[in-house]
Each structure stands twice: as C-alpha cells, then as structure tokens.
Amino acid sequence: MDTNKTVTAVGNHPRSSRLRRRLRRERELWILSAFILVWLAVICYYPMYGLIIAFKYYVPGKPFFTAKWVGLKYFSQFINGRDFPIVMRNTLAISGLNILFGFPAPILLALLLNELKNKHYKSVVQTVSYLPHFISWVVAASLLFSILNSEGFLNKILVRAGIIEAPINWLSKGEYFWGILTTANIWKGVGFSSIIYLSAIAGIDEELYQAGAVDGLNRTGSIWHITLPGIRTTVVLLGILQIGSILNAGFQQQLLLGTTQTRKYYEVIDTYAYKYGVQNNNYSYGTAVGLMKGVISVTLVLLANRISKKVMDIAVL
C-alpha cells in the first residue's frame, strides 16, 4: 500500500516529493544544525547589531534604537583628535617592528635547528623553545617586570659590566618600550612559529641535497639554493598574511606591560578603543574606533588573500 502511495505522489508532484524525501533524510542534520545556527546567531551575529551605536549617541542602559543618530561624528572625532597621530604611530611602529624582526626570527631559528647535527640536542632545544608559547602574557609580564625593574638582574649585570652607571627601571621609560615589546614578542613566539617552517624543511626532497653536493654546493650554498627555495611558499604566504594584519599590533602585551609613564609609546588602536569604550563608558566612541580599525583590517586581509592567490596560486583559508 505504502509503495503505491509513493508512486502516485511521485507521479503528481515529483519535485516537492523529492524535496520532502530529502528533508526527511536530512531531518536529523537540520535539527543539529539548528542548534548550531542559534548559537551562531546569538554569539556571533547578534553582537554585530550593536555596531550601530558607532553612528549614534548611545547612553548606557538605554536601548540602541532610541539613541539619537549622529552620523560619522565619532569617526571624525577620532581622526581629528589629539591622540590619533600617537595611536597610529604606535600601532604602525609596533607592527612594523614585529614584521621586521619578529617575522624572520622563526625562519632563522628553523634554519639553525636544521643545521644541528645531534638529533637529541635538536629536540631538546625545540621542546624548550615552545615553552614561552604555553605561558600566558600575565606570566610573561611578571617575568619581564622582575627582570627589568631597578632591582632585577638585568640591571645588576649591566651595572657590574660597567655599561650603565645606575640601575634603570626599563619599563617606566617610554623610549625603551617598543624594543622591549618586540623582544618579548619574539621570545614568546619564535619557537612555536618555527614549527611550520621546520615541517616545510622536512618536506624538501633529500635527493636535491645529494644532487647539490654532486654539483659542488657547499653548506651555505645548499641552504641558499635548496632549503630556502624549498620553504619559499610558506614564507611568502605567512608574510603576506602578517602584512595583512598590520593593524593588529597586539593588545594584551600593551595592557600588561604598559604603565602610565609609557602610555605615549604603548597606546595602540585596540587598547585605545578599549580604554575609551569600556573603562570610560564612552561606548559609541570606542565602537567607532574599533569599527574603523575592523573595516580597514578586513580589507587588508582580503587584499592579502587575493595577492597570495595571484602570486602563489594558493588561497589562505
């Protein structure tokens, strides 16, 4: 009986029945997906609605939609403001230093590790190098404060070696902040970031090295002509990505290491938006600053993706 029914149904409405059958087959998956989509809507997309307060005069505690429209007032307030040049300078300088020194560091480490003869020693160095990645920035900041304060051991070494006359409280001096931050970023990330380059190096065909040796390549030559070209794709890809995220100059580091004395050097767009938005209750202004940064960032990342697709024929993500 049942089969008869189905046959006639197919005869009358073939399309809707196929759809129904399909839905019945996928029912379970749709129920599961519904839960996931509810989560997505509430946690990821609902907050985006709040972005409209960037264009409104929002008073905390009142609903968004009753707030008065002010257009681009907060955007121009930020761009024409007194803090803008400093905040932009810090963001670009810190990011630039990260690209200039932080980007090549793991490549160099991977090359040096690859040249170690003793396998056990190599794996010990690698294991130790991952450690800073696994500690929080709070711990890293605590270590830095204790190394760099006037009673810390850096001062002791430098004073004893006669390089400086009196101990310096390094973290309270703005002019050293960028250097300290860049060093800390490298210290924390270099080991873990080198993993991807090491695995790229491991993927290079060993026959290339044999052939190179036959052709009389020495050690530097085989690094320059075989290893480096072998990891070129990875390097270019990650490089483009990093340039794309140039406005992300870090956030936690600055909040943890920055002090009132160094504010002129550590304040970047993200910390600025956070301070004005959450700490000073100026939600609209903070949102506007964040939104502006977000829009530029996404454009840069998409552009970077486009370029990497063109240049390397590989899409990132």
């Binding site: 998956l29 997505l40 990821c44 609605y49 709040g50 307060i53 959450v278 939600y283 949102t287």
Partner: peptide
C-alpha cells in the same frame, strides 16, 4: 549529501573575517 553543508561552513568562515568587536560584544553579552 547534506544540503545545508556549504551554508553552515560559510556562515562560520565569515566569522573569521568579521566580528562585532570588543564593545558591541560586551554589550551583547
């Protein structure tokens, strides 16, 4: 064979590029 597969995937991939940002997320939470 799941027809919602691409939609689900894309809806999540989008969150990798676009997020509400700190303050709107804070207010939403």
């Amino acid at each position: 064979w799941f027809s919602g597969r691409k939609f689900l995937r894309r809806a999540f991939l989008l969150t990798m590029y676009f997020s509400a940002g700190l303050i709107p997320t804070y207010l939403a939470f």
